[in-house]
Design a protein around this nucleic acid. Structure first.
Length: 270
DNA sequence: ATCGCAGCCTGTACGC
DNA sequence: TGCGTACAGGCTGCGA
């Protein structure tokens, strides 16, 4: 579920609520696979007693630097972090919790159990679109050296880290590129437009504190339980049947690389 | 190298 | 109302 803007918002909020500097005095793992392949008992032993030094985002990963190890969290589809109190009972979908020295608790909820907490195993992911190294040369070279549909390439975290289904559809619409167009067949104009659109749609997502679709609890929520507002700014994602904001033709939905894909058949031609 | 599919999970929406 | 099916913002591993 959470893509780069949602994870960035979560990391910012974890910093704002003062997680940095706190000491972890206890750890509970309610769904063992969350910390796989590590044994939950071992995981608790290693994390217990450590101080939170710093919190970063790397693509869709949250990296928490502890006194003498690093914690990498991937929220996948339904992972959420909430701050609570020691007295809180175990929440319905709570899979893990960290307890701090001041009585605060960090709850990790994950309805579908896909999320992962890893110790030290640094994820092998590509360039973050906000990094200095995300240059036109890098992007252009990436596209011309692969013969595949543009959308699956943009979703591949080994190349570019942070884009997911929502922001890829939005970036392709902004750049007027058909999601099934082969990436080594994009024109220079299309490649340049896409190169600019990717950071732009992500930046807008961060400014709006993420996209919270629908209204049930499996959707993305910020650390304080509030919703982002980027869902009100989307142009194509889950907008099938709506009019394109540019040309007024109907947005349609197809499947590309096994993922629901929304685009304007008039603005985005193969 | 790339593609398509199953699998990992739970819950919701929708058709009958 | 109930049941079955499809689908969901992610990612991996497998065979073709």
């Amino acid at each position: 579920m959470p893509e780069l803007p949602e994870v960035e918002t979560i990391v910012q909020e974890l910093q704002e609520v003062g997680l940095v500097g706190r000491k972890i005095v206890d750890v509970s793992v309610f769904w063992p696979r969350t910390v796989a392949p590590l044994d939950p008992v071992l995981f608790c032993q290693k994390v217990k007693g450590q101080l939170i030094r710093q919190i970063f985002r790397r693509g869709k990963w949250i990296e928490i630097q502890l006194s003498d190890c690093r914690l990498f969290i991937h929220l996948r589809m339904t992972g959420k972090l909430f701050l609570g109190k020691l007295s809180d009972g175990v929440l319905k979908h709570e899979r893990l919790r960290l307890q701090f020295d001041d009585g605060c608790v960090l709850h990790y909820e994950d309805q579908r159990k896909f999320g992962r907490w890893q110790l030290n195993a640094s994820p092998e992911i590509g360039l973050d679109p906000f990094s200095k190294n995300f240059t036109w040369e890098f992007f252009e070279n990436l596209l011309v050296s692969h013969h595949q549909k543009i959308k699956p390439l943009l979703l591949n975290q080994r190349y570019i880290a942070g884009l997911g289904n929502i922001y890829v559809d939005e970036a392709l619409w902004e750049a007027k590129v058909h999601p099934m167009k082969l990436c080594d067949e994009l024109s220079t104009i299309e490649k340049k437009s896409l190169f600019l659109a990717i950071p732009r749609v992500l930046r807008k997502g961060v400014e709006n504190k993420g996209t919270s679709l629908g209204n049930h609890r499996s959707n993305y929520l910020n650390v304080n339980g509030s919703r982002g507002s980027n869902q009100y700014q989307l142009n194509v994602f889950r907008k099938e049947g709506h009019s394109c904001a540019r040309c007024r033709k109907k947005i349609i939905k197809i499947i590309v690389g096994q993922r629901g894909t929304h685009f304007c058949p008039c603005c985005q031609k193969v």
